[in-house]
């Protein structure tokens, strides 16, 4: 069971806002999903039927050489920014609907 305080704490960590009117429903929803996630704590040991000891050929990150290459232009990088100014990302300290 998750408390309303915990939901608010998690929402803050996730930079999401849950207002008073949504809190009840959000808490119930969180409790339900955490109860579901908690199924993995039902038993200390799990049996997935592994019998053979097979070497793991896990992926290793393939990092390319760190070289300076031609990349995007300043204009392209700012293309999707709503409030670019003078070639920079620009965010006003506050904003109000006009």
């Amino acid at each position: 069971m998750v408390t309303k305080e915990e939901v608010l704490k998690i929402a803050k960590l996730a930079s999401l806002e849950i207002d008073e009117s949504e809190l009840e429903e959000a808490t119930a929803g969180m409790s339900e999903i955490i109860e579901f996630a908690n199924k993995i704590n039902e038993a200390a040991e799990f049996n997935f039927g592994a019998e053979a000891d097979v070497p793991d050929d896990a992926l290793v990150n393939a990092i390319r050489a760190d070289e300076v290459v031609e990349s995007f232009t300043n204009e392209e990088i700012l293309k999707n920014c709503k409030t670019a100014r003078d070639g920079f990302f620009y965010i006003a300290k506050s904003g109000r609907k006009i």
């Binding site: 939901v7 999401l16 806002e17």
Partner: peptide
């Protein structure tokens, strides 16, 4: 979002208004 009083509020409101219910549910989990 276009209505906010400081940068942190801008980010929180943008995310809260921009994401739908299922996406928020998964981010919270």
């Amino acid at each position: 979002t276009d209505s906010y009083s400081n940068i942190n509020e801008m980010i929180v409101k943008t995310r809260s208004e921009g994401f739908g219910k299922e996406v928020k549910r998964r981010i919270l989990l």
